[in-house]
Amino acid sequence: MKKLKEFIIEKAIFLSGSLSIIFVVLIFVFLVKEGVLFFKYVPPKDFLMGNNWYPLSTPEQFGMLPLILGSLLVTIGSMLISIPLGVACAFYIAEVVNPKFKDILKTGVELLAAIPSVVIGFVGMITLVPWVKSIFNLPTGLTALSGSIMLAFMAMPTIVSIAEDAITAVPRRYKEAALALGATHWQAMYKVIIVAAAPGIFAAVMLGVGRVIGETMAVMMITGNAAVIPHTFLEPVRTLTATIAAEMGESIRGSNHYYALFVVGIILFIITFIINFVADVFLHRIKK
């Protein structure tokens, strides 16, 4: 009797554990199964390199380049903002701030992650977008720049939290050695501690990138969603994620458009998978 109970519990745990992996595999299989049909009608080269995304015109055009560039631009923009800010913040929390306030600060930054992305999008839309419009004297404030700024806020908690862990994990003896040689605190930080914490900081940045690329709601609300090839940060863009979210509902099941969105999904999946994988490799390296 006892044996049977053990057996059932063991299998149940095994099943729950495997389920998450099974789901990932199933989702990927489903995406590929639906997406692959698309290439019967549209050659991959036209898809990846085409300049025009007109899924509803006749003849329909599925050039994904504007979407890829849109995602790329918003991601680069938000990283330019969040990496320096996030790493500096992590250093402040790990090295500078009075230990009494350390926990409060870190929890505060991590709470930023708890804000739903729709709220971030909403706040950005009401406050940031009009500023961008008036500061740069633009016809619309719904631009890649607005998206980058708001997404930087979403990447910050991830970057700060993981980078701070990495900096705190740097053995004290490195810092002591640097100080004993007559380095100032700042010199010890930027020449020794940052080098020792580099893999962790890199992982933090990668996870931040993953968060930004996968983000949908906020970008959809504030980047303007124009599927044209952007030339500057001050133009509206449309990201891969926003495209799926905006168009999936209206596409006809089984149409080329429908399959095209699946391919967009596959590409997103591959990008985020690679990013998370790389981050994971670096995080494991620290643990050793």
Binding site: R173, Y174, E176, A180, V192
Partner: peptide
Amino acid sequence: VDIRRRVGMVFQKPNPFP
């Protein structure tokens, strides 16, 4: 900083920088 430069220290466990 000047004191620490003038008075060097070698620690118990070798601690070269990475």
